[in-house]
Design a protein around this nucleic acid. Structure first.
Lengths: 331, 331
DNA sequence: TTGTATGCGTTATCAC
DNA sequence: GTGATAACGCATACAA
């Protein structure tokens, strides 16, 4: 491969001039510029970015830590991150962790070894054995829960959950079940708080037997459906902590001959694309996935640029999406 | 940040010894090794991979070109690519093209400028204005159609389509519609060939009005459903070129009071996770997504290693997945 | 086994 | 406006 020296020789100028022709064209005479560009074309020269980045001590790459890459919610976020990064000359390094702290550590090593300039963390923060924040690693958290101890952008899961449960209550439901994610997941915790707050304010007693602990997969939603179907005192409505589990539950109910929403109402959370195409279409909470990804990347760029953001926490608005999966309670 | 020189000084050895301590520990005496490692801990040294990679003229990064990574099929493939790359010390750079050749060119520039060592192309090959193969770019194509002019791994879409249409025929259907992807998409072309072959061998005449051109989205599948619903001579079965469009069509049929599969049978293609959770669960073709991703990465690693693979084309087996979306034809 | 010295391709600092 | 040259952090050929 050709390098800057070869171009310089060919163009009859110094390597400094060639370098300037690329990074500071207006500091080079028209004449030299033309000679350089001609030589570049002749030898098919491309600047070696590895050398350039090395020299500038910046990799222009950012690692995105994502628990599960085959999750449509995260892919939306990542897409926005990439989009935003691209505009500023940054590349995205994929870091799927599958909830393994070991893997996460491996990816963080990319930053320590200068293969990446910073990190965007998409997994919610779990205080115990957390690797971030880290004194030498520039990081921003996105899509987390409350209590993230470094720059973060998220929505308010408590009030989002509360609002959708309030909606169920306003439709006359009082026996409202909840399909939860793993109990120690921060999102589950936040949303459960919202669920409980809504019940309490409506004077409805919290009932442990109406809580089913899933893990945010359709399969676990299906299990939840099976569980509720065999209950003597069935709930009349279900608050599912994400769309996937709602889908699974609906499938199960159909298998048990329970009609949704006529016999039982259900709500989702996320508003994935297919929430429109389920039967019935899901009433759900739209998470501002793209906005969170974009904002997170902007914040990280800011941090990498040396200007620390004014706030530490940015809370974006969710949206209530009304569709067909809830009917008023009729005794 | 500390560098190799500082560690050397601290350990009382030369920088060569420090370097060897990392890359060739067995060529260093126990004594020196310990001194080095102690010094490393003291100053918190991490090798600068940018410098190392620059020096070795390898970036240990690979770009994955994907048309749409909010697509569960591709995310599965990418995950396998990453998994395999990780084992060999390679990182994955995300390159979502959204079918823009400009963007694709931008990402390929990463290879030309040494930010990446090679490319895995997930979009099917369209001869006209294609950028790959390229003389200076190591590349492997995955998930493509036939006629990819460089190293590729794929499945046989023609015979897969043929087999699932054959199944519909074997169930007594003769008026079999087809929801296609964009007509100029190579996958659409291949699968349409299979569809036509199956019809022909069964002596069924091809009927243009039964073809609906979608674009692989649920929305377009819904449009297809609307189209068939208003047809005077409705098909009794539908071959959808992917799962997403099948979902959309089923939704539309429900809105029109057409029962699936009692009134109309339908099949999908891909076998995404939610194909189990639709109502009815989809009979479909499983694409070997993980296997394709893994194999593609292995091939690229081989190429980057200088050993060109024996074959140019690797064809992986698909699988017929029988579920509930097809019923025998009853006149 | 260890150390010295050179160079990877670039940018930047200095003179001119 | 231009050119020589010194870094950047590391790996390695060669010498010792």
């Amino acid at each position: 491969m050709s390098n800057i020296r070869e171009v310089a020789k060919r163009a009859g100028v110094s390597i400094a001039t060639v370098s300037r022709a690329f990074t500071n064209p207006d500091k080079v005479s028209k004449n030299s510029l033309k000679k350089v560009m001609d030589a570049v074309d002749e030898v098919g020269y491309r600047p070696n970015m590895m050398a350039r980045n090395f020299r500038s001590t910046k990799s222009y790459a950012v690692v995105v830590l994502v628990p599960d890459f085959a999750n449509l919610f995260f892919t939306k976020v990542i897409r926005a991150i990439q989009e935003t990064g691209l505009k500023h000359g940054y590349n995205i390094l994929l870091g799927e962790t599958r909830d393994s702290k070991e893997r996460e550590a491996d990816y963080l090593k990319l930053v320590e070894t200068r293969q990446a300039d910073g990190v965007i963390q998409l997994s919610p923060h779990i205080p115990e054995q957390e690797l971030l924040p880290h004194p030498h690693i520039h990081a921003v958290a996105a899509c987390g829960a409350c209590d993230t101890p470094y720059t973060s952008v998220r929505m308010d899961h408590i009030s989002a959950a509360k609002s959708i449960v309030n909606y169920l209550i306003s439709m006359g439901h009082r026996k409202i079940a909840c399909i939860s994610g793993l109990a120690d997941n921060p999102h589950s915790r936040d949303r459960l708080v919202g669920y409980k707050q809504a019940l309490e304010e409506a004077g409805i007693e919290f009932n442990e037997t109406l809580i089913f602990e899933g893990n945010f997969t359709m399969a676990s939603g299906h299990d939840a459906g099976d569980y509720y179907a065999q209950l003597d005192e069935k709930p009349s409505a279900i608050f599912s902590m994400n769309d996937d589990m709602a889908i699974g539950a609906i499938k199960s109910f159909k298998e048990h001959g329970i009609r949704v929403p006529q016999d039982i109402s259900i709500t989702g959370f996320d508003d994935l694309d297919f929430a429109t195409y389920t039967d019935p279409a899901l009433t759900t909470i739209r998470q501002p996935a793209e906005e969170m990804g974009k904002k997170a990347m902007q914040l990280l760029l800011q941090i990498l640029d040396g200007k620390n953001p004014a706030q530490q926490e940015f809370i974006l608005k969710h949206e209530f999406v009304l569709r067909d999966s809830v009917l008023p309670y009729k005794g």
